[in-house]
Design a protein around this nucleic acid. Structure first.
Lengths: 340, 340
DNA sequence: TATCGCTATGGCAGCGCTACCATTTGGTGG
DNA sequence: CCACCAAATGGTAGCGCTGCCATAGCGATA
């Protein structure tokens, strides 16, 4: 064993600690990871040296040797959106106590960036992966299968899952909300969706809306699609265009809460009272929906629970426990408020 | 070199690729990290083998050998808060193109958890660290100095920085807002702060408020502190208590936007018109402040830029470039809206 | 042809740890 | 006092890569 000062790295190593404590390196390693297998006396000696030196074991070297990284890769489209940040929070909160750390990547809604990130995280030998959404490039399947790494897809429930999944049915949720609007007496329904090919969530919601509307014999249900980001600004514009073309509309279901907020503002600008003159509904369960006047009726998704469940699934898999339900539907809830 | 099937790990290694391509392992490594140093012919051969096998190099082993991980540790109190998620977004967006990945940890506002996470991330040999806030347990200084790892503190500007910092002065920002309220003609000022010892941001804001109020000769400026989380619920309660005790108040400055929203709602419940009867101001620049009626005047902080600047500082340090300004004040902006 | 000066390539030790055994220790029962 | 066994401990190869240096190749120049 070379003396510290003539090594390429000046870092303290486990063998240094071992020597100082008068034990073997194996014993030091054990006293970190399986303390119960080391006699109390020995452990005390080691702890003393560790405290004194401030030694922190190198987990990368450990990962290399043990062939497991205790790292989870977590991919989201964007962090600055409560939808995803709640999932992130759920995953990290649940993984940390189990000794896993989270590698975070944001794809910016780009499937190509997603693949790049997945490759990078597989390169880091992440033990598991949590993806957002159910649509991925074909490479993804290849990579994760080749690396044989457990994967959980979240948010949407995939028709053809890569591995495991936690989410809810956008179609069903939209159907429930539509039925609710009809039950409340709305006759001229409209939905404002997102005109983006990669946003299959929006299309599933529009589909669900139409299915129920047609079933209930609604006359001419209106579908209004907006391109670009689903901001409140877009919501206002959509509401404006929609009302100009279909002034008889008595309820508008927005596929995103933020757009619903914008829509509400536009109604107020026009002096249309909500919900008397026109009912408004959102989707997502964001906090803002509770803060507007009137508060917006929306579909609430248990976002943090999605993260938690995803983490649970991964941990079960790591411990080789059997997973009875690899595809979990966490459901949704119609949050009845004042706007509809 | 042992054949693949009798190794402890079944993973493909660089030497396998090298053999298949008929070159040495060093050349394969180089063709990944410094392609310009490898002849085009050789590179093509290697690329072909890589594509064919789906080989992904092990970055952990690479990190161990090169003594650098290309990993950044990022600590926030909680992810599900736009204040922090924007910083996260800023850091990841800026770090990724430079080849760095982000390890994310959330402390839940606990200094002890923070230390644990820092220790874990130092164990993973993160090359740099971004912390939130300026108050840390003394262990933190020890650990980062021992590990000699670059650190950026964000959000608040620390009086006694660990290393580098990016943020703004809470005191000054609060002073500006207070002055603004006074200039608008408010005479009976109140501030709603956060009654938590570890929340030094709130106290700095209250201080700034008082300094300006006293200076301007305001009669009996009111300081109202609320315990617990700074939610809109708490804001409503604070407004209610405050108005009962000091009905003459003509402007309330909330140290958090969410509380300001709650305060606004309470005023509306009481039939007090904002801003005519009472002015309301918030702090933070959250999106919601633009969506209420009336929209709330607030102090806007360039959050994403904080993340970006922090990342910049780390990259400069990694490249051994000189840093002229290790403490960066990104400033703030009084967002004049309708509520004040 | 011999010499130089590049660029391109390769061999191998070592990064710091853990898995896998082998060995030692200490307590028990005969 | 010895055989026996479980608990505690230790030696060392190897995890997959890169840093360091040595060597090979190859054209240009004298």
């Amino acid at each position: 064993m070379k003396p510290l000062h003539q090594r390429r790295s000046k870092r303290l190593r486990i063998e240094d600690i071992a020597r100082m404590a008068g034990v073997g390196p194996t014993t030091v390693s054990r006293s970190f990871r399986q303390p119960e297998k080391v006699s109390q006396k020995t452990r005390k000696k080691i702890d003393a040296v560790v405290r004194e030196t401030g030694y922190i074991p190198d987990l990368m070297a450990g990962s290399l040797a043990s062939l497991q990284s205790r790292l989870i890769a977590l991919l989201v489209p964007t962090i600055a959106n409560p939808v995803h940040s709640d999932i992130i929070q759920g995953v990290t909160d649940y993984m940390r106590p189990a000794g896993y750390e989270v590698l975070l990547g944001s794809t910016g809604y780009s499937p190509k960036v997603e693949v790049d990130l997945i490759r990078a995280f597989v390169g880091r030998r992440a033990d598991g992966m949590v993806l957002t959404g159910a649509n991925h490039l074909p490479e993804v399947k290849q990579i994760v299968e080749m690396a044989s790494i457990p994967v959980v897809e979240t948010w949407e429930l995939p028709g053809n899952p890569l591995d495991m999944a936690v989410g809810f049915s956008n179609r069903q949720a939209a159907m429930s909300m539509t039925q609710y609007l009809i039950d409340r007496g709305c006759k001229r329904l409209a939905i404002v969706g997102h005109d983006a090919p990669s946003d299959s969530r929006s299309s599933a919601r529009v589909e669900g809306f139409l299915a129920v509307a047609v079933q209930a014999g609604i006359i001419e249900p209106v579908v209004w699609l907006v391109p670009g980001p689903t901001t409140s600004q877009r919501g206002s514009e959509a509401m404006s265009g929609l009302l100009n073309k279909h002034p008889e509309t008595d309820s508008v279901f927005f596929v995103s809460d933020l757009m619903a907020v914008g829509g509400l503002l536009e109604c107020q600008r026009r002096g249309l009272t909500v919900p008397n003159k026109i009912a408004i509904a959102g989707f997502g369960g964001s906090e803002i929906t509770a803060l507007t006047h009137p508060a917006i009726t929306t579909v609430h998704i248990p976002r943090k629970e999605i993260g938690k469940r995803a983490a649970e699934l991964l941990l079960l898999r790591f411990n080789n426990e059997s997973i009875l339900e690899p595809i979990i539907d966490v459901g949704y809830m119609i949050m009845k408020r004042e706007s509809a």
